[in-house]
Amino acid sequence: MDRRDFIKTTGGLILTVGSGTYAFRILSATGVSVSDTDNPLIGKKWGMVIDLTKCRPDCTDCLTACRTENNVSFHGDKRWDNHWIRKVKIEGEVGHTKVEKMVPLLCNHCDNPPCAQVCPVKATYKRDDGIVIVDHHRCIGCRYCMIACPYNARQFNFKNDEDWPNEERPKRSHGVAEACNLCAHRLDVGQMPACVEACQKCGANAILVGDLNDPVSEINRITSTLSVKRIREDLGTEPKVYYLGL
């Protein structure tokens, strides 16, 4: 075998094995679809109401509960810490009165989520029950969703976190985007999200999660009868987190 033949044979071999492996990976990556009739999520539309008049300014129980439940990574540095839910202090003037409020912020689970629109691999998507969720096994870490989110609600796992308080939930590894998933795993089995449970335990009872499609639900009563606000409604993203007293 001369040099030319050798190169041809090895090249052909590498090409065949390489493309075969690649084709196999692509074929095996295509997901299994669930038929609509089997899908228990259809028909629901989860939403949240946060009553700022009940929320205690110095309380951070919901933040701690969220971190512990979901193993949200924390490194003690604002630049790389993740907070699926965070509390911010806002200040301004209404008329001549100075206004100061503490507002819990989290993913708004928009009905028109810009993060899902821009995701090149559909790793971020809206479930049939309205929850916007990230598939950590599919995300390629391009961070386009962070650019697209107008609420600064999406973060990125910039580094590994060795803490693993809840071993039933996945440990966070670096390289993928993150955001609040409304504790979908808990809602799916009839439990309330960790932040709601913590808020009830501390006695404030300021957070409520419910089905916006259910005409007799408490959340529907509040959003249709009381003066609720959503953050930057003007953007047309249709957020599903409502605030009382904002």
């Binding site: 995701c119 691999v121 390629i140």
Partner: peptide, 27 residues
């Protein structure tokens, strides 16, 4: 070289192509 998970870049974008994303259309 800027992606968080380089290992997924060669498969996922082609399998889960998102026509609405500029990041899908551009490649």
């Amino acid at each position: 070289t800027d992606q968080g998970r380089i290992d997924r870049v060669f498969v996922e974008p082609f399998v889960y192509f998102n026509l609405q994303s500029m990041f899908s259309i551009n490649p």
